[in-house]
């Protein structure tokens, strides 16, 4: 019963990806510029960490290969968010302002799905691949022993992290309905993804502790990369696992309710 609509949505996602690929190919220059920027950006990050690790064995309890894995995990997860959702969420504010949202609301399909998954941003797919590559390299460096259970757990928590990050983005996106102009969305999102980029142990110092708690328990953005990365290369408290599941479910449901509430307030700019 549940499978039929799931199959339909999966097929639709495939078609949307295909059409956007056709579109992307007609703007090849843009694609190349974007990929080059991302490669340089990753290069800078790696050069910086290399320099730091030349002086020390560990940052906040993470040694070099572990940290590299963390960075790879962040890159892959953030890349997926950008590929699947970022451009769509960013378009949303403009669609509210211009009233182009109308046609998306008329389609016999879940509004949240169509609005947030409409376009597939192929230019950020290389980020995902770079992230995966980095994770594999770091696992080789640390002589990781293959462990199927761990790998499966990692995949599950990676998806949880993805859903969690998506939920935060959806809340920020929904605000566009009231703010109409929402250029701050990108900056807010940048803050969120910056928070997710570092191990949460960096907040263990005295003055940073309240911040760490805030972003772990109240707005659990720190869980997004930390939990899957820890599961794979370190150990994890069992209760943290439970909390991750809970946080993911609550964030997803609340963000959806908030989004639907926002759509109710949509005014549909005049034609």
């Amino acid at each position: 019963m549940i499978l039929a609509p799931l199959k339909r949505y999966a097929r639709l996602l495939g078609s949307l990806a295909r059409y956007t690929l056709a579109r992307e190919m007609s703007f090849r220059g843009n694609f190349l510029v974007k990929v080059s920027v991302e490669v340089i950006w990753l290069g800078i990050m790696l050069a910086f960490y290399r320099t730091v690790f030349a002086k020390t064995n560990a940052i906040a309890g993470w040694n070099e290969p572990e940290y590299l894995f963390f960075v790879g995990c962040y890159f892959a997860l953030n890349g997926l968010i950008e590929t699947l959702f970022l451009e769509n969420c960013n378009d949303f504010a403009e669609m509210v302002r211009s009233g182009d949202l109308d046609f998306l609301l008329l389609k016999p399909i879940d509004e949240q799905f169509l609005i947030t998954c409409r376009k597939f941003d192929w230019a950020t797919v290389p980020n995902v691949l770079m992230g995966v590559g980095l994770m594999i390299i770091s696992l080789i460096q640390m002589h990781w022993q293959f462990d199927l259970m761990r790998l499966l757990a990692f995949c599950v928590f990676f998806v949880c992290g993805l859903i969690l990050a998506y939920s935060f983005m959806l809340v920020l996106t929904s605000l566009s309905v009231w703010l109409v102009r929402n250029q701050n969305l990108m900056e807010m999102w940048w803050l969120f993804s910056s928070l997710a980029r570092y191990p949460k142990e960096i907040f263990n110092q005295s003055w940073a502790e309240p911040l760490g708690r805030l972003f772990t328990y109240v707005i659990p953005i720190l869980l997004v990369v930390n939990v899957p990365a820890r599961v794979m290369v370190k150990s994890l408290d069992p209760w943290m696992i439970g909390f991750m599941f809970l946080a993911t479910a609550v964030a997803f449901i609340l963000s959806r309710m908030f989004f639907m509430r926002a759509l109710r307030s949509y005014r549909s700019a005049s034609s």
Partner: peptide, 11 residues
């Protein structure tokens, strides 16, 4: 709607 379009512009 005569003043809005739903077709994909670039395709």
């Amino acid at each position: 709607m005569g003043q809005k379009n739903q077709l994909w512009w670039d395709l």
